[in-house]
Computed example of a mutant assay.
Amino acid sequence: MLDETAKGVFTIAATPFLPDGALDFESLDRLVDTYAEKGADGLTILGMMGEAGKLSADESLAVIKRVIGRSPVPIVVGVSAPGLAAMSALAGEAMQAGAKGVMVAPPMGLRTDAQITGYFHNVAEALGDIPFVLQDFPLATGVQISPSVILQIVADCPTCVMLKHEDWPGLEKISTLRKASDAGARRISILCGNGGMYLLEELLRGADGAMTGFGYPEMMRQVIDACHAGELDHARDIFDAYMPMIRYEAQPGMGLAIRKHTLAQRGMIAHPTLRKPGAGLSAAAIAEVDALAARQKRRLNDLGL
């Protein structure tokens, strides 16, 4: 089961589609294999990057079973839903299929600390003994969760074992949470998103790793390993080589299309299709991504990677 000691790289997996929008299971198999080869310690599926909201219930379960049956690393399943009944049902099916935990984001509309705390109390009750990840992504959800609220949820809900940290800016939040755990609060795992944009600083502030879907998942593995080895300058050099692509990927509304283009160019999936509604990249954007990829490759060759 997923627990508070989780660390390293939990890659957020894309969901591959054929050009007509149907699920592409062959690409899904290849993607799972490649994520593991690139150093993933775990995979998170059916998150926002996985276009979970565009899948039917049957499709979601099919993806869950296919990934769990293929993956050599633990799987966390996104189960966020407008209602607790749907969330609980998907979570139960995921765990029965072999998932190690689930991830839950707060629904839009929560505004007060009491509303947020009350919501996650209800989540913990609905999920029972299933361990869950609290996804803190205000850029997407519009829900601002303060460190004190996170600490209250962690204190009240023993099955909350991880924070998916995607606040922006959020480095001070990590520091505040780690100072609290150093002072005696329950320490949970913190894995960070935002496409890896702040990964190095997040690690130095006390994060345990990354949970994001950058199109070059090996970047997280390389940076984390160098950082843990005490080779901070080398970690910075690696990060700097990828930074232009990370920056470009970070464009709101375009990130997933850019990532899927990259995954397709690398042969990890067959098609860069986003399921509708969702647009692809213009010819100009594709040229920009490809130019960044070529320059990135040269810089990595200089580093011997």
Rank of each mutant, 00 (worst) to 15 (best):
E166Q: 09
P244D: 09
E172M: 07
G128D: 04
I246D: 01
A183N: 11
T117A: 13
P131H: 00
A124S: 15
A207T: 02
H228L: 09
P244H: 12
Y198K: 15
D136H: 00
E249T: 14
H234D: 07
D240W: 10
D233I: 05
L139C: 14
A226R: 08
N194M: 12
A183D: 13
H165F: 03
N194P: 05
C160M: 06
A226C: 11
P169E: 03
R221C: 03
I190E: 00
G206D: 07
G213W: 02
Q144T: 13
L127G: 03
G128I: 03
G170R: 01
D113A: 15
Q135F: 02
I188N: 03
A226N: 03
S146L: 04
R247A: 13
S148G: 10
T112Q: 06
Y242W: 12
A126L: 09
A126V: 05
L151Y: 00
Y248S: 10
S148M: 13
V133G: 04
D113Y: 08
D129G: 11
Q144K: 10
W168Y: 13
D129L: 07
V123W: 04
L171C: 09
K164R: 05
T112H: 07
E218N: 10
T112P: 08
E166P: 06
P158T: 01
R178C: 07
D156C: 00
E202K: 15
N194D: 05
M219R: 09
N194W: 04
I188C: 03
E202T: 11
A241C: 08
R236G: 06
I246F: 05
G184K: 12
G193R: 08
Q152N: 12
C157P: 01
I238N: 04
K164M: 00
Q115L: 11
M243H: 13
P138D: 02
P217D: 09
L134D: 02
N122Y: 07
T176Q: 14
Q135G: 02
R187Y: 06
G209A: 05
V143R: 09
Y198V: 10
T117W: 12
Y242A: 14
Y242K: 14
D237M: 11
P217R: 05
D225M: 06
T141I: 09
H228A: 07
K173A: 02
A241N: 08
G206W: 06
G142C: 13
T117L: 15
D167F: 03
E249S: 14
R186F: 04
V123Q: 02
M220I: 09
G206E: 03
I174D: 10
M245T: 15
R186W: 09
L127C: 05
L134F: 01
W168L: 13
I188Q: 06
M220Q: 15
Q135T: 02
N122G: 14
D156S: 04
S189L: 10
V161F: 06
A229E: 13
A140C: 11
P138A: 01
A180C: 02
D136M: 00
Y119S: 09
H165G: 07
D182Y: 10
